[in-house]
């Protein structure tokens, strides 16, 4: 017997085609805005001489987390510079920072809304599961018709893939605020927004920061995939090394990614701790 297969793929495809043609002006606007943002960030980081940026980052690490991280930052970044991977590193950093910013700007309000409304919570949580379990490659496919090949598509896919933890942790953080503190705020006549800004958000900040930290790590994990649709950076170094069968080059770029990841991880974690005390 021959059961006709459900044309799920066809439906999605025609839906996407319709979306791209109908909203081409919107996607183009987003595309231009994103591209400009990336370029500005990238150019300003590149404009600084290597040693100056290295010094700045070391200073930031020192202020935020102490001497040890500062020394680590200098050593790691110097190695990247020495390997000739400075510019790709900057491109990757730009991509990650920009994607994280976009993700956080979307995630905070969504996470707050999901924390405050049970109905939204039940709606959003399965969507987050879906977003996180769907193989990241798949996001590249709609990204390309929307935004074409290049860093904008890469950002789009990265944002979607890395946003869930920021939403989840924001929701979790707010829901974790002890009921007695909510009760205290209510008892003194706080309005909803007073409660949110004076009690719920400040108390959930450490958890929110943990979510942002995860988002950054996920964004970094997307660099090689992003490279497949034309994003420049360390990812494309790895991708090129794979295509040319040059494991040495691949590992060098990989190590640079690890250094960047450790740096960003420690830095955001220390941010979280200083906020708490």
């Amino acid at each position: 017997m021959n059961i006709p297969s459900i044309p799920l793929g066809d439906w999605i495809e025609s839906g996407l085609t319709w979306l791209t043609s109908e909203y081409s002006s919107v996607t183009r606007a987003i595309s231009r805005f994103t591209q400009t943002g990336i370029d500005v960030l990238n150019d300003s980081l590149m404009w600084l001489p290597e040693w100056a940026l290295l010094g700045l980052i070391a200073l930031l690490c020192w202020k935020q987390a102490g001497v040890r991280l500062a020394i680590g930052a200098v050593a790691g970044l110097a190695l990247i510079w020495n390997l000739g991977l400075w510019n790709p590193m900057i491109e990757t950093l730009t991509l990650v920072v920009f994607a994280t910013l976009v993700a956080v700007v979307i995630a905070l309000p969504v996470g707050i809304a999901a924390a405050l409304s049970n109905r939204l919570y039940r709606l959003i949580m399965p969507i987050l599961d879906f977003m996180q379990t769907m193989p990241a490659f798949v996001y590249l496919i709609p990204a390309i018709p929307f935004f074409g090949i290049g860093s904008v598509s890469a950002i789009f896919a990265t944002v979607i893939f890395s946003m869930p933890p920021a939403i989840r942790f924001t929701t979790l953080g707010i829901r974790q605020v002890p009921v007695e503190l909510i009760e205290a705020a209510d008892a003194y006549g706080a309005t909803r927004s007073q409660k949110l800004f004076k009690v719920q958000l400040p108390l959930s900040l450490p958890t929110v920061m943990a979510g942002i930290n995860q988002t950054i790590m996920l964004a970094l994990s997307m660099v090689v995939i992003a490279a497949m649709i034309g994003a420049d950076g360390l990812g494309s170094e790895v991708w090129r090394a794979i295509q040319r069968l040059r494991p040495g080059d691949g590992f060098e770029a990989g190590i640079a990614v690890v250094i960047l990841a450790m740096l960003l991880d420690r830095l955001t974690q220390s941010l979280r701790k200083t906020r708490r005390s």
Binding site: E180, E183, A184, A187, Y188, G189, V199
Partner: peptide, 16 residues
């Protein structure tokens, strides 16, 4: 009404 009339002290303090 809560602002004008009521202050509350809680068993487990409920300090921020």
């Amino acid at each position: 009404c809560r602002r004008r009339h009521f202050s509350m002290v809680f068993q487990n303090f409920a300090l921020f």
